[in-house]
Amino acid sequence: MTDTEIDRAKQAARERVWNLLERAGAAPPGVHGHIPDFAGADQAAARLAELPIWRAATVIKSNPDKAQLPVRVRALHKGKLLYMAVPKLATPAPFYLLDPATLTMPLETAASSGGAAKTARTIGVDEMRPVDLIVCGSVVVNRNGVRVGKGAGYSDIEVALLTEAGLIGPETTIVTTVHQLQVVEDELPETEHDFRVDVIVTPDDVIECGSPMRPNGIMAGHLNAQKVRDIPVLKPYADR
């Protein structure tokens, strides 16, 4: 498939699942264009918290979307160090550092995108510790771990940045929490800069996927000029 065909196939998968979630009342209206804030997100977070990979993790990196807010809150309540991506990676230091030992506002607030912006310091990968567990949002995912996000590519860039910095490797687990309607049986398109998730957690199930698959780092050839302008941390990679 060409890049254009892959983009079209991904968008078709997104639209199908967004429509399905809305029809089923499994996500709030207006879900199109977003990582779905799905019904049962709290239960999925609780199920994730039962897993050995969660209990063993001391450093977690998460996306900032509302669907994964219950996961982030649990992480802070358990005393885990939490890195959260700055929305759209729009600052030169593109991650919030959330340390429950030093936070001065309620953890439920600090774990939100708005709360983190008010209370957390932003840091670059040079200040980060190795990450034990990555939590990402998805629009669609299949049982092989192939995921489709909302289309902006931020999660792929975050994983690539952490890989470049040596902060994650094949042993680092990547998990997504989703509604069961977001899990599909069919093949999903992917490119070489996409990563696959290792574990899918729904309110009702835990699905272990296949062998880890993720990029070796930032792929300069996949960066367009607009993305480099919008995401300051990418400039050194685009210039190399």
Rank of each mutant, 00 (worst) to 15 (best):
E50Y: 02
P52N: 03
R55N: 08
A57M: 04
A57F: 08
I60F: 02
I60P: 07
I60H: 05
S62C: 12
D65S: 13
K66Q: 14
K66G: 09
Q68V: 15
V71P: 10
R74Q: 15
H77F: 09
K78G: 10
K78T: 08
G79C: 07
L81E: 11
L81D: 14
Y83S: 11
M84V: 14
M84K: 06
P87F: 04
K88T: 13
T91H: 11
P92N: 08
A93V: 00
P94D: 00
P94N: 08
P94A: 07
D99G: 11
M105A: 13
M105W: 07
P106F: 13
L107D: 05
L107F: 13
L107T: 10
G115Y: 05
G115V: 04
A116H: 01
A117W: 06
A117D: 12
I123W: 04
I123P: 03
G124K: 13
G124C: 05
D126G: 13
D126H: 15
R129T: 12
R129C: 08
D132L: 02
D132S: 09
I134D: 03
V135W: 00
C136S: 14
G137I: 02
S138K: 07
V140C: 14
V140K: 15
N144W: 04
G145I: 04
G145Y: 06
